[in-house]
Design a protein around this nucleic acid. Sequence first.
DNA 1: GGCAATCCTTGATCAAGATCAAGGCGGCAA
DNA 2: TTGCCGCCTTGATCTTGATCAAGGATTGCC
Lengths: 241, 241
Amino acid sequence: MSSKLTAGDLQIISRIAVFRGLKAETVEQIIAPATAMMLRPHEWIVRQGDPATAFFIIIDGWVKLYRSAPSGDDTVIEIMTKGESFAEAVAFTGNRYFSTAEAVTEARVGRIPADHIVRCIRQSPDIALAMVASISQHLHHLVQQVEQLKAQSGVQRVAEFLASLSPAEQGHCSVALPYDKILIAGRLGLTPESLSRAFARLRTIGVVVDASHVMVKDVAKLRALAADDRSAVRGTLRPVR
Amino acid sequence: MSSKLTAGDLQIISRIAVFRGLKAETVEQIIAPATAMMLRPHEWIVRQGDPATAFFIIIDGWVKLYRSAPSGDDTVIEIMTKGESFAEAVAFTGNRYFSTAEAVTEARVGRIPADHIVRCIRQSPDIALAMVASISQHLHHLVQQVEQLKAQSGVQRVAEFLASLSPAEQGHCSVALPYDKILIAGRLGLTPESLSRAFARLRTIGVVVDASHVMVKDVAKLRALAADDRSAVRGTLRPVR
DNA sequence: GGCAATCCTTGATCAAGATCAAGGCGGCAA
DNA sequence: TTGCCGCCTTGATCTTGATCAAGGATTGCC
């Protein structure tokens, strides 16, 4: 289940996110005691409520963070992939993980013990600043999610999601959905049925979804819709039967 | 507008949140260059998009964090009071504040320059750990908010909010709403009208709201409702006309 | 091939919450 | 005192999204 990191893993880890800006030797020192986890779909990495003893970097694959209510239903908090990290902050507090992390695809995840990092920080405090920067990203992302849930309709959230997949600011583009629609629906706080209908509505502004392929005629229009700019999509977006 | 911290301010600040667990002299060193801001209602502390150069500790009063969309409407992200801090993480990144912070009541807020803290951290890294712990709290709070918005109905969020005001786990209690209902509605992602109707529904399970006074007959029932435990409130909660 | 399971879509219906409109009430200033 | 304004509530209506139900498409397995 757990093994040493390969040279390739190190390459990936040191180039990304959490450790951006640190010297190569510092990064090496940090990840010295790291291990790699190989996961099959549905296997979990940590469980909500477990004492936090480490944080994680995704080397490959997709991972979802979700919370389970006593009533039984799960709420997706975040979906992450290669180069992203999670549970940094809580790992330093000794508290408990507040979400479950589960592999969505086959995945490879680096595990870094918190106590080791704490030692490293005492030795070179710059590490702390790098990690705070990474944590700040997570905060920003969550703040945006709260804003979206409170202020945007389902169709708008879908539009924003599609726009975020598109590399371009405007013009047309063709992208692939990164994971299945049930999961996308969860990410956006919708049921699969509602997501399906949202896609149907977006057809009226030139978005064609076929399985995991999405053709967007005009990305700018998508963004305008997400931003509530009614003039950009006036008269369109009728419900589709 | 900005002045020195009083001895009383120092008392409050050093006892709370961000600096918990640090030695008194360390705290003193950190807040040496801090200033106090006195604010009237509606005055802002920082603006969304401003470069982040400091973080803040609320000494007294209430402060709301909110984001403004290009379309004009505002989304409440968080409402905070005495002893709470904000913008810690982003202050270290040099990025821009991602919400506006505005006084809701008269308020007194301590401002701590980020560059100074960075120097302190290099000198004694324990500060970083204390701050990460505080940031972790913020993360947890946001995660909970996302969960609530995605998984709970408006009435449930209101129930949870009221339950959180009550010191007791169960039994009856009487509390005061901490700020006006428009703001409570914003915090919970509802319109004032919907909040009003949610309160009306809760009357059927023994919650009486009169102006800012709330009488709760059975806090346990509130919590059960928030947690989706239908058996606890079976047959009640009919819409009220 | 046939079968089952999963994913996705579509339709019909229902419930939740937003919106629009109106009115009560309390505080405050002239 | 009067009048105004902002907060709050209530009613009527509309929109959004959830739920329930059914069926098509794909995939994997025997």
